[in-house]
Design a protein around this nucleic acid. Structure first.
Length: 273
DNA sequence: CCAGTATCCTGCAGGC
DNA sequence: TGCCTGCAGGATACTG
């Protein structure tokens, strides 16, 4: 569920919320996720360490402690990080709990288990199969330089290309739809059939959409929340996502939906060409 | 290599 | 009320 803006919002909350804290105990259950969650391993690496920093690459979170290596977390579709009082009721599908030195807890909850939480040894960041192949960050100023030629070289629909983490790292179904609407590009248009100037404009707009969403704390559709339980407020700015059948905010034409790469895609048949 | 589909999993909404 | 189907902020293993 979370795309770059939601993960970045979580990262910022953890950076502040975990400052100066240590991990006194690790608890949970070894469960099958996108990669197996190895509780004994995580526990042996994390217990007794102090939090240093929270980083992000694409939709991946990287948490650093005062020990070699990092905790890598991906939230998948339904993952949540919770920073809460130990007395808070434990939600179903809480797979990992870290007791903190101030008496609170950091919990990783993920009902669908499409996410992951694994320990990366020093150096593995460069070799890990997921991290290694990630494309450019949407917030990187070089995006409008680097992305257009990559998209232009492909015959897939631009929507699929925006969702391809090997090309751009962090865009998901919401922001791909929004960026294409703002750019006036039909989601089914092939990359190779889209001019470089239009792709350049798409790159710029993609970054703007992501920036605005980060500023709003991400988008809450159903259950996304920050570690402290707050919601994201970008939903009020959505123009097409989840609005099939409504009228286009720009030209009032009825918004259509179709499926691209297995994902629902909403677009305006009038002003997206 | 590229493009497209199937698949992992739970929860929830909608139709009957 | 239940039972069924399909869909959900994602990534990747497979097929052709």
């Amino acid at each position: 569920m979370p795309e770059l803006p939601e993960v970045e919002t979580v990262r910022r909350a953890l950076e502040i919320g975990l400052e100066g804290l240590g991990v006194t105990r690790v608890d949970g259950r070894s469960v099958m996720m996108r990669r197996p969650l190895d509780l004994p391993h995580l526990s042996s690496k994390l217990t007794g360490t102090g939090f240093i920093a929270a980083r992000r690459r694409g939709k991946f979170l990287l948490l650093d402690f005062d020990s070699p290596g990092s905790l890598m977390v991906h939230l998948g579709m339904s993952g949540r990080m919770m920073l809460c009082d130990a007395m808070e009721p434990i939600l179903d599908h809480t797979h990992l709990t870290m007791d903190l030195s101030d008496g609170r807890e950091l919990r990783f909850v993920d009902p669908r288990r499409f996410g992951l939480a694994i320990w990366l040894e020093p150096g593995e960041e460069a070799t890990d199969s997921s991290l290694r192949s990630l494309g450019i960050e949407p917030l990187d100023p070089a995006l409008e330089e680097l992305l257009p030629p990559l998209l232009h070289a492909r015959r897939s629909p631009v929507k699929s290309l925006l969702l391809d983490q090997h090309l751009v790292a962090g865009v998901g179904n919401i922001y791909a739809a929004e960026a294409l609407w703002r750019a006036g590009i039909r989601p089914t248009r092939k990359g190779s059939r889209t001019s470089l100037p239009r792709l350049r404009r798409l790159a710029v707009i993609t970054r703007e959409v992501i920036e605005e969403a980060v500023a709003q704390g991400g988008t809450t559709i159903r259950d996304y929340a920050t570690p402290s339980g707050d919601f994201g407020y970008f939903a009020v700015k959505l123009n097409v996502y989840g609005k099939e059948g409504e009228s286009c905010p720009r030209c009032s034409t009825e918004l259509k939906d179709t499926r691209i790469a297995g994902r629902t895609t909403v677009w305006c048949p009038q002003c997206q060409r």
